[in-house]
Amino acid sequence: MRVTQGCFSFLPDLTDADIRTQVQYCIDKGWAVNIEFTDDPHPRNTYWEMWSLPAFDVKDAAPIMLELDACRKVHGGRKYIRLSGFDSTHGWESVRISFLVGRPQEEPGFILTRNEGGGQAIQYTLQARPLPGASA
């Protein structure tokens, strides 16, 4: 399966030149760009591991692309990697864009567990299947 989280998962995988355009968009908006990775793509898994601190005060996408390269060297093809742009403006103070820039070579998907309660009601539990070769 293909996890379709993030802004651009229905497009063909982004090239580095593509990613650069979106990173520059964030920088020009004054947002801090953050690189995160995880082996648990559950949609409620909010806190992916941060690769480094969010990049505040940069003017150009180059340093983020450098960090992304470094992150890929370690996790590329094995974990999910995403970029996000954080807006500290009052009233937002949250993520304004987020998109995947790396996936494991094989995406094992999720297990949906149905627990029958009383009557016809079902409690659903969603769990990501472990990624091959990934630990923690």
């Binding site: 990049a55 005060d57 940069v58 003017k59 150009d60 996408a61 340093p63 450098l66």
Partner: peptide, 8 residues
């Protein structure tokens, strides 16, 4: 510092 200067 280098990151801030990149592009300039």
């Amino acid at each position: 510092v280098l990151k801030k200067a990149m592009g300039g």
